[in-house]
Nucleic acid binder design. Structure first.
Lengths: 188, 188
DNA sequence: CCACTAACGCAACGATCACTGCGAGGTTCC
DNA sequence: GGAACCTCGCAGTGATCGTTGCGTTAGTGG
């Protein structure tokens, strides 16, 4: 036994071959999800759309569920910017607006719905980043010595209506409506 | 051409053969959804579990999507009883409690998540009955000449947090928490 | 510059899926 | 009681899916 040589270090440097096929496969998944077909989102279909062979997808991800989870993780991580205007109300309005705008994107919405459909354990990825963002805003205001609503209340008042309306209804998530949610959390 | 004889009247009388098959297939779908497998919920699997032949399922429903929609429709229709205690607050608390209890059932939750995953257009079935129930409660109170919150506010304050917590998180929907939602809608 | 590792393409295989005629059984209506 | 209709079971077919072994290519470190 060769004394555990090198750990399975995946080639993920930008521009590398693995990174390219990863991006292509992710893009194919998003396109197929948005492609309003309900069609089977199966590995061979994704691979064909991405221009790679199905074998590659099977080996790297194994199943549609893991592939979806990976796409969701890379979609809902990193590219969020916590608003910081100095005013809690304004921060929360920016936050609600950003989230409404994000969930209005058909690709994102289709991804969220697909993730929910895979069993829910991976659904946390779709909201965890946003929830942390919300917590950061409130904790920062708390650090300034002001009274703040509880995280739980903020989630119920902002996150829940936004996600509920996006996922379960066809009503648009207008900026005015998103801001009105903040006015119900901070009535004064 | 036989001059359109009789309309396709499905044999749905209770106890009939079609009704038995339908019930068995619906039960099989619920069991497989709750069976915590993520496994493929495919027509042959459902048929085998229901003790019928796959051909029957293919002919009556055609696809997994339509089958799921049918199961959801018959699951979320009819068996709801609108609370009527004479007090708006008590009605809403009963309502929230009933809904929390309903969504706490793993079978129901799995069905909701699966419906969402199929594309969203059928997701309305999972909430429409409940929304009508909520509207009925509020309109009845309004008929008594009292001030009432808007339907939209009630949906955002009650329906949205319940569905959000059930679908996206693993937190339990405790009766106390459900009641606390009402206290935020009716603060006085 | 050269060897080594890892990721990818290729071609097969078995298994399962979705679908289609055909016949049998039960229910309804005359 | 008999005939028509609908529903279901049965067997077979083509297509697709998931998986595996092997050779090739790209990227990495000495």
């Amino acid at each position: 036994m060769p004394a555990q040589s090198s750990p399975p270090r995946t080639d993920s440097r930008p521009g590398g071959r693995s990174a390219r096929v990863r991006a292509a496969v992710h893009q194919a998944v998003k396109e197929l999800l948005a492609d309003e077909a309900g069609d089977a989102l199966t590995i061979p279909v994704v691979a064909a759309r991405a221009g790679v062979h199905a074998t590659t997808v099977y080996r790297r991800w194994g199943s549609v569920g893991e592939l979806l989870a990976d796409v969701a993780t890379s979609r809902f991580s990193g590219d969020v910017v916590v608003p910081d205007t100095g005013s809690l109300r304004e921060d929360l309005e920016r936050y609600a607006y950003d989230l409404a705008r994000d969930l209005s994107d058909p690709d994102t919405l289709a991804l969220v719905r697909a993730i929910v459909g895979t069993g829910g354990e991976a659904a946390g990825v779709c909201r965890m980043e946003r929830q942390r963002q919300l917590e950061a805003i409130i904790e920062r205001e708390q650090g300034r010595g002001n009274e703040v609503p509880s995280i739980e209340r903020a989630i119920e008042t902002l996150l829940a209506p936004l996600y509920y309306r996006a996922v379960f209804t066809d009503q648009p998530l207008s900026p005015e409506w998103a801001r009105s949610l903040v006015s119900h959390l901070l009535p004064k």
